[in-house]
Nucleic acid binder design. Structure first.
Length: 1168
RNA sequence: GGGCUUGUAGCUCAGGUGGUUAGAGCGCUACACUGAUAAUGUAGAGGUCCCUGGUUCGAGUCCAGGCAGGCCCA
């Protein structure tokens, strides 16, 4: 059987489609799993993509990474099942549907029923599934597409419910609130999407207040008082206030904390209150100090002082910009110094405002990482009920919110849902926060709530500065009224309860890159807040919690069975008329009356579950909490829900938890990576994955984000069909580490294609061409024993073993880039450009000798192993190469059950390195040969002596026997490569070596430190005698600046980079000289070689096959005849000529031109 | 504003634990080679290693502070 031969250039796209078809036809993917039955498993989780958009080139990147390690583990013999999955819920799908229908959220339930709306979402979400499946196949991503998990399916949702119930039973699920944009006029919360509508942000003029918060004197604040008293004119008297600015004065009565930046610098300023003229000290950020204070006398001329220094009148306390002129900086503190200080409540009980729970923990200075010195005072007033930052900072610092009880005793913020202060708010009770009811504001003495508060504070001496200020503020797109940031009910998972465990277990996860795990993810865990599960939407997993109206009783449902049973109770209590989820005789009854054994057709989405009412133990009706849950819960639940666990498949779940490996984009860190981890820890007290790779973004070639709008997006389908999946994958992996961003440039794929795949293909073609000519077929047995192989073969096989070790190591360490680069360097630099190049003659010369057989077998082994090593990254080409290389061996391999028995490379077991074949000394001397050859080429170039002209010798100075021995063993290779007769060594005894020394700075530095400079300079001046002394006696004493230093041989590097009278080239410690003397014989041989070259070209130009024999007649020429006389048999052999003659007259032939010759020639094919 | 990350030749990237003359591939220029030929070899041009300070005898590498790009979060 022949090795298949292909035309140049190979169509890599075609290789992809051909191999893909073959895989499908032979079920190779399935076999790659089934043939590993009973073997240890490698568990991989597929992060579900959403099929509501077309896949992009970045998906090829992400999925290549996943595929590589699954394939690699399969090659190691592990069983790697890969269940695909689809993420189907969530806002992007809702938005897409709304856009297509031309509706808004407002219209749901009005213009379109929830039922129809959700039906539409269900259809939309899988719209691009076919394209995704197509890409999955074409790029060679092996994942099970036939039985994927789908997050909208009833069994999946049911699993989510079961998990939620588990969390509920552990007390980890609770109802609280979050701060969200809220429109009191419309009575509804607004999504960030609604807030991003054009026109919602408008310029408004508000009353703003810099409020004074009076510091309590205690241990924490003593340093402030001490500083104030040291400089104050009011010893032991002055009050200290912290200044905080707000554009929403109505939130001040709800203040419970003040936030500072840890590293921000603050001034303590001795000054006066501009309204009450009270002498006080205030705290304000240094960077904002000049906003509030000005030196009245600054500048040569001002409105108050003339250039001659005369006063133009009495200094005002406040200048025209409202800055205070009377001040003295009494101290400087950082935010850290201030944290923990207590202050007095602004609107306390004494002023008629209500007490609240946890008050003793309130009114403290806390840290806020959001605090800036852009505007205000560098200190932020915190009211946890009216700001998201406020809420979070307060929660982290354990500061309570100011909540008051309504008539029913239910706690709420000081503003009700219509936008009015609650009645308990003293003099301001019942006032509108903003004008939400459209009341008349035109009256002369009309005051807004903000203004009333400002007036009151001026009187109290707690307002430092009140002014109108224009800024942008979001407005409700429906009512045009300003939005409030307002606490809205939400369900939470108490992740903070397991925070320490989350952190602890995270440390056991192998993150690639490690910095994402310790940095981005680690920090996120350190600053963890509870997971807000609630979403006020329609298309998603419904929260399975039913509650009584007053919230006193509730139930969390964990399965459809349970729900059905509860409904039966409700029916019995006449709360429900019938049970839509009822089971009769073991079958589920559908809406149309049909019976189903499974729950697969039951729809648990809204609106159906909304129509379910349950009965509480006390007989009250219970209503479903209308929220949906965060879609991230869906995807984080996939380790369980993909098996419908915990409702069934307990064994299967156990076998597949946790994952050995997952990979997604780094943007998933707080998404999927977190939800997997959180659920894993809370439900199983375990990590959910052991190894995780967070890959970077795919940018365009200029480093910009790809987008359809900019037109710089790369189409994955055309890229794969044009360049082939392998080159595309290889480029993406080899070009940059997966976790770095990739600047995607199609030119890079072309380069990979040419340089790597082209070279590998050429190497294969070369092998196939000659093996077929010789009728050679490699076998797994009956090979030339390793001990009989020549240097060159043993060398490349040694390199090959080293490569196996290296590449396995990189794959094991989840570093595919280094694996790809190592394979690439081996193929191009070592295998092709050295081993094959130097072995060429072995392949085309003569009969199938043992050496020729060895050449074939060595190359065959290299190619097969390379195919295996590259298979995870370039699965199609590797398969192609494997099939071509081993097709002829299969029958015997199958019969004898050898490593090459599998029909596909992806079913083989990755070869183990045979370390006994690694010969470091051999690798080293081959490198010497490569470098010496390179130097010799360089010398030829300088002397204008082409390689075809043989030369007598090169001279290599050697300073030790090892080098001499090493180079000696590769002398033949060097001679052949650079066309010289032999290598001559020059050692010390020759007496012609000129040595020089170079200081060994590393060693000298450690030894002499600051003296290194002079010592180094002295070493560079060493004489030949001194060098010789150092070498012979092992030490040398030198005197520098009156001090004596004793040098050891290790302190210097001795080299010979000059041979007097010779042209030399050096590369580090290596030096080569070339003898350029030309003898008559060398000249003749040169001519003979030229002749061979021209005749070979002529053969080729005449279209002869490699194996054709010829007869040649040359025009008479004395020097040529002399050359042919001496080298005739060599020439005839090279050009496969049966005859080589001279004739006085040549007619009808061509003319060979070389050097100074013009020779007529006639060439004819000799039959037979 | 915070966290993480990147910055080295025209482009893409290497450069353990500090060591003086910073490398590779591609691209460019020139020459050579040629039964692998859209391959290969040699040589050349091309660098303030983002900037500023610091530590050190010595910094691309370590420290501090900036600048610029990216991602995530606010």
């Amino acid at each position: 059987m022949n090795y298949p031969e292909y035309k140049q250039p190979l169509n890599y796209g075609q290789v992809g489609t051909d191999i893909l078809a073959w895989w499908k036809q032979n079920g190779i993917f399935e076999k790659s799993v089934s043939t590993r039955d009973g073997q240890p498993t490698f568990v991989f989780y597929e992060g579900p993509p959403s099929a509501n958009g077309a896949p992009g080139i970045h998906h090829v990147m992400a999925r290549t990474v996943k595929d590589i390690f699954c394939r690699y583990q399969t090659l190691l013999g592990k069983q790697v099942s890969r269940k695909g999955g689809w993420d189907t819920h969530g806002l992007p799908i809702e938005l897409q549907v709304e856009k297509e229908l031309g509706i808004t959220k407002e219209d749901i339930g009005k213009k379109i029923s929830i039922e129809d709306y959700n039906q539409r979402c269900r259809e939309t979400v899988m719209r691009f599934k076919a394209q995704w499946d197509d890409l999955t196949e074409k790029m060679g991503y092996w994942v099970d597409l036939d039985d994927p998990y789908i997050t909208f399916e009833p069994e999946y949702i049911e699993s989510c419910w079961a998990l939620l119930k588990k969390l509920y039973d552990k007390g980890l699920l609770y109802k609280g609130y979050t701060i969200q944009p809220y429109s009191p006029a419309a009575g509804t919360g607004l999504s960030s999407h609604e807030l991003n509508q054009p026109g919602t942000y408008r310029d408004v003029k508000d009353t703003t207040i810099v409020a004074q918060f009076k510091v309590q004197r205690d241990e924490k604040s003593e340093k402030l008082f001490a500083a104030a008293e040291q400089v104050s004119r009011r010893p032991n008297g002055g009050a200290i206030y912290i200044l905080a600015w707000t554009t929403t004065p109505w939130t001040l009565p709800a203040n419970t904390a003040l936030a500072v930046g840890k590293n921000i610098v603050y001034y303590l300023v001795d000054t006066v209150n501009p309204y009450t003229k009270e002498e006080i000290s205030v705290v304000v950020a240094k960077a904002l100090f000049e906003k509030y204070f000005v030196h009245a006398l600054e500048g040569k001329e001002s409105e108050y002082v003339s250039s001659t220094g005369e006063s133009k009148g009495e200094l005002p306390l406040v200048d025209k910009k409202g800055r205070i002129t009377k001040w003295f900086v009494a101290g400087e503190f950082t935010g850290s110094d201030l944290i923990g200080i207590r202050y007095e409540r602004l609107f306390g009980h004494d002023k008629g405002f209500p007490a609240f729970e946890g008050e003793e923990r309130a009114f403290r200075v806390i840290n806020g990482d959001f605090v800036t010195t852009e505007d205000g005072t560098g200190i932020v007033h915190i009211s946890p009920t009216f700001g998201a930052d406020d809420f979070r900072a307060a929660a982290l610092a354990d500061v309570p919110a100011l909540l008051v009880a309504d008539d029913e005793g239910k706690l709420g913020p000081i503003v009700d849902r219509t936008g009015r202060y609650v009645t308990q708010m003293g003099e301001f009770g019942g006032r509108w926060v903003k004008n939400y009811d459209g009341h008349d504001q035109s009256g002369a003495d009309y005051k807004t709530l903000d203004e009333s508060i400002a007036i009151r504070m001026k009187g109290d001496g707690t307002a430092f500065k009140v002014e109108k200020y224009e800024h942008t503020y979001p407005h409700c797109w429906r009512t045009d009224k300003p939005v409030l940031y307002y606490p809205l009910d939400s369900w939470f998972i108490k992740t903070t309860a397991v925070k320490d465990r989350l952190i602890e277990l995270n440390k056991t996860i192998n993150w690639q890159p490690a910095s994402t795990g310790s940095g981005r993810f680690g920090n996120w865990l350190e600053n963890l807040v509870d997971w807000n599960l609630s979403r006020s939407r329609y298309w998603g997993t419904p929260l399975p919690i039913w509650r009584t109206q007053d919230g006193s009783e509730e139930i969390c449902i964990g399965s459809i069975e349970e729900l059905s049973a509860e409904i039966d109770k409700a029916v019995a209590a006449e709360i429900m008329t019938h049970n839509p989820y009822r089971k009769v005789d073991g079958n589920w009854v559908m809406a149309d009356g049909s019976a189903e054994e499974s729950t697969k057709k039951i729809d648990l989405h809204r609106p159906y579950v909304d129509d379910i009412f349950l009965v509480s133990p006390s007989g009250q009706a219970m209503y479903r909490e209308t929220d949906l849950i965060d879609v991230w819960f869906d995807s984080g639940a996939m380790p369980y829900a993909q098996w419908h666990y915990p409702l069934e498949n307990g064994e299967k779940f156990k076998q597949n938890f946790p994952a050995d490996f997952i990979a997604e984009g780094v943007d998933q860190t707080r998404g999927w990576f977190f939800t997997l981890h959180a659920l894993g820890v809370m439900l199983e007290d375990s990590v959910a994955y052991k190894n995780v790779m967070a890959n970077g973004l795919v940018l365009d070639k200029n480093g910009n984000k790809m987008s359809k709008r900019l037109g710089n997006a790369i189409d994955p389908f055309s890229t794969i069909s044009q360049y082939g999946p392998d080159a595309t994958r290889w480029y993406m992996i080899a070009n940059a580490q997966p976790w770095d961003n990739l600047k995607f440039d199609l030119a890079g794929i072309t380069e990979v294609q040419r340089r790597f795949f082209g070279t590998l293909f050429n190497t294969y073609s070369f092998y196939a061409l000659y093996a077929n000519l010789d009728g050679f077929q490699a076998r797994e047995f009956d090979r030339v024993p390793h001990s009989d192989l020549g240097e060159l073969d043993r060398w490349i096989l040694s390199k090959l073993q080293s490569l196996i070790l290296e590449v396995r190591g990189y794959y094991d360490a989840y570093d595919p880039t280094k694996a790809a680069r190592a394979i690439q360097d081996f193929v191009t630099d070592q295998l092709s450009n050295w081993h094959v190049r130097l072995s060429r003659r072995r392949f085309w010369k003569g009969e199938l000798t043992q050496d020729k057989k060895a050449a074939y077998e060595t190359l065959q082994e290299c190619l097969v192993v390379v195919a295996q090593l590259m298979a995870p990254i370039a699965p199609f080409f590797a398969e192609w190469l494997y099939q071509n290389m081993t097709g002829g061996m299969r029958e015997e391999a199958v019969a004898k059950s050898t490593p090459l028995a599998p029909e596909s490379i992806h079913l083989t077991l990755l070869v183990e390195a045979n370390e006994t074949r690694i010969d470091k000394a051999l690798e080293e001397r081959m490198e010497l040969a490569q470098r010496i050859s390179s130097l010799t080429h360089s010398l030829r170039k300088k002397s204008v002596l082409k390689v075809r002209q043989p030369l007598q010798r090169i001279l290599v100075p050697v300073l030790n026997d090892t080098t001499r021995e090493q180079v000696g063993k590769v002398e033949d290779l060097i001679c052949a490569e650079v066309n010289v007769k032999h290598v001559e060594f020059l050692d010390d005894t020759s007496g012609v070596l000129v040595k020089s020394v170079k200081p060994n700075f590393k060693r000298l530095g450690q030894q002499y430190g600051p003296k290194l400079k002079v010592v180094g300079a002295r070493i560079q001046q060493m004489t030949a005698e001194e060098i010789s002394t150092l070498e012979k006696t092992g030490q040398l004493a030198v005197e520098i600046e009156g001090e004596t230093y004793t040098l050891a041989p290790d302190d210097v590097e001795i080299r010979t980079d000059d041979l007097p009278g010779w042209l030399v080239a050096t590369d580090g410690p290596l030096t080569v000289a070339l003898d350029v003397t030309l003898t008559e014989e060398l000249r003749q041989e040169g001519v003979a070689r030229e002749l061979v070259n021209r005749l070979q070209n002529l053969r080729k130009d005449s279209g002869l096959e490699v194996q054709d024999k010829i007869r040649v007649t040359l025009g008479q020429q004395p020097e040529l005849e002399a050359a042919v006389q001496s080298f005739g048999s060599y020439i005839r052999e090279e050009i496969q000529a049966l005859a080589l003659d001279f004739a006085p007259e040549i007619s009808g032939g061509s003319v060979l031109e070389f050097d100074e010759y013009n020779v007529p020639v006639q060439l004819e094919v000799a039959n037979g």
